[in-house]
Computed example of a mutant assay.
Amino acid sequence: MPRRYWYIIIIYLATQLSGIVGAPILLAFGMGQTDAIAVWSIISFTIATVWMLLLLRPELEEKSDRSKSGVIILWGIAGFFLALFAQNIAGMIEMYLFNSSPESENTEMLTNIASQSPIFILLPVIFAPITEEIIFRKIIFGSIYKRTNFLLAVFISSLAFAAFHFDFTHLLVYFAAGSVFAFLYVRTKSIITPMITHMILNSLVMVVQLYREDLENYMEQMETILLGGFF
């Protein structure tokens, strides 16, 4: 594995742990706890994302092909529906076979922070998809795929992706999404494709979670209107 890949992994891990030091510094300047976590997360992941992309720049430029941009975007959008379908199947398996709750603790935690400090939305919608696809698809999956085969590479990288979210009740859901992302990467030969899918998927989750009550009220109103129209 190239040395720059190891640098990227170290940067990613350091960024994940940097809040232990960074958030208390912002707290010392009088910032609230939630805002301190949100602001530090955005600062640290902005730096990490730029740094990681710079380290990958020679490789990305070498493989860039503007003629494929339309294909990449289309597959990125189509991949969203594939990932959504795969996650729904995985969620039903978890619910019916393992009696798991459909609620995700990891998602609820991120939503709670975003609801109190909106700037935090940038983390799951922008920075997490970019950094996670670089780590789990570009580096882990890509390195294993070159030496073994697709199935083994998908299994190891998707399992690592799922475990790293520390939401073991929904391990299968994250694994399913990771498998779709890996398929998109291989299908288009561009890491940008799963990034796009990942961004759309996370954006949908955040919108649904943040506006759940409004959406539920809207659905109830629509149901009342439709029933009133029939009767």
Score class of each variant (00 low, 15 high):
22 G>K: 00
202 N>C: 10
54 L>K: 14
210 L>V: 01
55 L>P: 04
171 L>W: 05
177 A>Y: 09
21 V>G: 06
201 L>K: 10
152 L>S: 07
47 I>G: 02
37 I>A: 05
47 I>V: 10
107 T>Q: 15
129 P>I: 03
148 T>A: 15
21 V>Y: 08
208 V>M: 15
195 M>F: 08
181 F>W: 09
159 L>Y: 07
72 I>V: 10
184 L>M: 05
131 T>Y: 00
187 R>C: 06
99 N>K: 13
110 L>V: 09
97 L>M: 14
130 I>S: 05
202 N>F: 08
34 T>D: 06
186 V>N: 07
149 N>C: 06
62 E>L: 12
226 L>M: 15
230 F>T: 14
6 W>V: 11
144 I>W: 00
53 L>S: 06
214 D>S: 15
206 M>F: 08
193 T>A: 10
191 I>Q: 06
205 V>T: 13
73 I>P: 03
7 Y>L: 14
154 V>K: 00
143 S>H: 08
25 I>Q: 06
194 P>T: 01
98 F>E: 07
76 G>V: 02
79 G>R: 05
116 Q>W: 04
29 F>E: 08
209 Q>E: 11
178 G>E: 02
165 H>D: 01
224 T>G: 12
166 F>M: 14
110 L>Q: 05
183 F>K: 07
149 N>V: 07
12 Y>K: 02
156 I>W: 02
16 Q>W: 13
135 I>M: 05
181 F>R: 05
91 G>D: 12
58 P>H: 06
189 K>F: 11
95 M>A: 12
171 L>A: 14
167 D>I: 03
2 P>T: 10
127 F>K: 03
76 G>M: 01
221 Q>P: 09
196 I>D: 03
167 D>M: 05
175 F>L: 09
148 T>H: 12
52 M>R: 04
174 Y>R: 01
95 M>Y: 11
185 Y>F: 14
231 F>C: 14
171 L>T: 09
64 S>G: 13
194 P>R: 00
72 I>F: 06
43 I>K: 01
182 A>V: 06
216 E>V: 15
32 G>T: 15
76 G>Q: 03
93 I>W: 06
45 F>C: 09
65 D>W: 07
64 S>H: 12
9 I>Y: 00
9 I>S: 02
15 T>Q: 02
186 V>M: 09
52 M>T: 04
227 L>Y: 13
10 I>E: 00
3 R>A: 13
64 S>C: 15
33 Q>C: 09
197 T>S: 13
51 W>T: 09
62 E>Q: 12
206 M>K: 05
217 N>V: 15
100 S>N: 14
84 L>S: 14
24 P>N: 07
85 F>C: 11
131 T>S: 07
14 A>P: 05
31 M>R: 01
163 A>P: 02
113 I>F: 03
171 L>R: 03
30 G>S: 07
199 M>W: 10
67 S>Q: 13
96 Y>W: 13
20 I>V: 12
37 I>E: 05
132 E>G: 04
16 Q>P: 08
207 V>N: 04
43 I>T: 00
208 V>P: 10
80 F>P: 02
10 I>D: 00
77 I>G: 06
179 S>Y: 02
177 A>W: 09
37 I>S: 01
183 F>M: 14
96 Y>K: 15
103 E>Y: 11
105 E>V: 15
59 E>N: 15
91 G>L: 11
189 K>M: 13
111 T>P: 02
170 H>I: 07
70 G>S: 14
150 F>L: 07
